[in-house]
Amino acid sequence: MSITTPEHDERIAKMTFASVYPHYVTKVEKKNRTKAELHQVIEWLTGFDDNKLQQLIDDKVTFKTFFEQATIHPNAHLIKGVICGYRIEDITTTLTQQTRYLDKLVDELAKGRKMEKILREG
């Protein structure tokens, strides 16, 4: 059973990564984490290095395009918990789930979690 509505999924698909990225930066920097750490987390999840990330921001790609171009880390399924009121492991729409993975990683970074825990290294 899907816990997100088609409207919710569509809204996420159409949002641009560039519109959300500054909020990620603000969120982690407010908690004394760095943009470099944020990029490390994003690269772990998506495979995007700094140059590719900047290109995607400049191109104002949607989350749909962003995740279509990503190589999702094989341990991403280990990202569990509740984000924005949704239990990540129960989300059935792949794109919405991947977007929530990213939200959860940013959250953990902002909350001061150790990098090896965030990057699911065991």
Rank of each mutant, 00 (worst) to 15 (best):
S2D: 15
S2L: 11
I3W: 08
T5I: 14
T5E: 09
P6C: 07
H8V: 09
D9N: 13
D9C: 09
E10K: 13
E10Y: 12
E10D: 12
R11L: 12
I12C: 02
A13M: 05
A13C: 05
T16I: 03
T16Y: 03
A18E: 06
S19D: 15
V20S: 11
Y21K: 06
P22M: 03
H23D: 09
Y24M: 12
V25M: 04
V25W: 05
T26V: 05
T26I: 08
T26Y: 14
T26L: 11
T26H: 13
E29G: 00
E29P: 00
K30R: 14
K30T: 02
K31P: 00
K31G: 11
K31M: 13
T34C: 11
T34I: 07
T34H: 06
K35N: 14
K35R: 11
A36R: 01
E37R: 02
L38Y: 02
L38T: 01
H39M: 11
H39S: 13
H39V: 15
Q40E: 15
V41H: 01
V41R: 00
I42G: 02
E43V: 02
L45W: 02
D49C: 10
D49M: 05
D49F: 02
D49T: 09
D50E: 13
N51A: 15
Q54D: 14
Q54H: 08
L56G: 01
D58K: 13
D58C: 07
D59F: 03
D59M: 08
D59N: 15
V61Q: 07
V61I: 13
T62L: 09
T62K: 05
F63V: 01
F63P: 01
T65Y: 02
T65R: 09
T65E: 12
F66H: 04
F66G: 04
E68L: 10
A70Y: 03
T71I: 06
I72M: 11
I72C: 06
H73L: 10
H73D: 11
P74G: 06
P74E: 13
A76S: 15
L78W: 04
L78H: 08
I79S: 04
K80G: 07
G81F: 11
I83P: 00
I83N: 03
G85C: 11
I88D: 00
E89G: 05
D90S: 13
D90Y: 08
T94H: 06
Q97D: 02
T99K: 06
D103T: 00
D103C: 07
D103Q: 13
K104C: 10
V106F: 01
L109M: 04
L109N: 03
A110M: 07
K111F: 07
G112W: 01
G112D: 06
G112K: 04
R113H: 10
K114G: 01
K114V: 06
M115S: 02
M115R: 06
K117P: 01
K117H: 11
K117R: 10
L119E: 04
G122M: 10
G122S: 12
G122D: 09
